[in-house]
Design a protein around this nucleic acid. Sequence first.
RNA 1: GGUCCUUUGGCCGAGUGGCUCAGGCAAAGCUCUGCAAAAGCUUCUACAGCGGUUCGAAUCCGCUAGGGACCUCCA
Length: 502
Amino acid sequence: MALHIYNSYTRKKELFAPITPGHVGMYVCGPTVSGESHLGHARPYVTFDVVYRYLTFKKLKVRYVRNITDAGHFEEEGREAEDKVSTKAQLEKLEPMELVQKYTNLFHWAMKQFNCIEPSIEPTATGHIVEQINMIEEIIRQGYAYEKNGSVYFDVKKYAAAHDYGKLSGRILEDLLDAESRENSVRELDGQQEKRDSADFALWKSAPPEHIMRWKSPWGEGFPGWHIECSAMATKYLGTKFDIHGGGMDLQFPHHESEIAQSTICNHTSPVNYWMHNNMITINGRKMGKSYNNVIKLTELFSGEHPLLTQPFHPMTVRFFILQSHYRSTLDFSSEALAASEKAVKRLWEAYNTLLKLPVTDNKQASDVALDEKITNWLGELEEFMDDDFNSAKVLANLFEMAPVINSLKDRLIPSESISSATLQMMKDKWKVFLEDIFGLSGVEEGNSELLQSVMQLLIEIRKEAKTKKDFATSDKIRKQLTELGILLKDEKDGSTSWNLD
RNA sequence: GGUCCUUUGGCCGAGUGGCUCAGGCAAAGCUCUGCAAAAGCUUCUACAGCGGUUCGAAUCCGCUAGGGACCUCCA
């Protein structure tokens, strides 16, 4: 089976065929760096990180572009106050780029925590003002945009007459056009009055005097509309037509719909072959989002400092939590669910470490053919599952099926000759590839320094001596106090003792 | 008001026409152990309701009910 991707545009799973054989161009909508990232933001970046890793595993050379939205159209934190006190000295004033830098750094830090591979190109909106202006000019030249009071709007009605506007988001044109006739009319947007139709969207916005972020343009000082940056940067780095465009489902409309319209006019071709949208993370069944006032920031998640959290959670736990469901399903957050993931990922990771340590003997013939076949099947399915629109949940389920086998091999509950050495080696290889290379998981142990290793070795020896002398008071004391310190001792079947951090 | 999606066992979550079965967490029993922990084995609770299509439906269709998303910034 070859890779199939669910295309939001056609609402079907389709065979993935890159435009340029062997190469993939992928654009993912990045963060708006006007505030701290929260758990909801983690989902697309983890999801598309796995997509990126899997395509790479499939021997495809991927150019992965993920933008940083740092321009104009967002309300910077503290803006309101700033607007009122513009008489301050330069250094006392709020410098927008300072905020942008702060939240960009924080975002990069979070991505690192999650083990997300850096994109090939991470362009910023402010760094591509010229490209955006050029694109707007071209759209005006072709008669699909108009200028009004220093702002430029895209003419949706004109575009829709000859194009499929609304197809991606499943919108009905009549509903969008002349929306004022609707009962629940749109909320007041800036400049609503100067648009020819309320469905038109801004390509360039004239900046009021107090607006801090502003650039010169043929239409006066202002800042770019939200949608144009992605079109401009995607075109610049991936060409007029590229393979995959990803983002959250909530961006389908109006953002991605507008991207299609802009690029189609400017480049005379629809920009994207496969549209991929991840679903939302919910909390108590409701989408996590700023406007719902129910966000859990990533820093809070990692520290456990939030009323809804009973404990801190490791980034790998969160990553695993995301991978345990399919990216197109909503995923409901709760401290309980995350705690379950924490235990699960720990168990899986320990099985993985155990597997790596199993000695590969020269066993050509499996004595338990049924088991050997079962394992081979489980391993073979891993790629099939990923090929079926990145079904990471099924891959994990199969890995869990193998965990008891691995543990039993270690404890000799299953004799080592039961499976062939080829199968064992394949198991080692596949686990490594899927857990580390594709899922991007890593161990959660910290502070595993050489010094600690030696100290632990010493304690284990002392305890062993006590046990031999049947001095269980001493041996239990060591174990109990270590447990209180967060170190768990395990007496193995072969008489040795292992330990790990809780 | 419009458009679309969703409802799976105590919890989280795969699954889309048939086969013994997702998986994880929790719970119970047993084995191992000086005792634990870990591990292993076993058990357990499901497809919102009603109707239809079909030899056969959690899976397809219809209705009812609940939940949600988008239509406005949003991952």
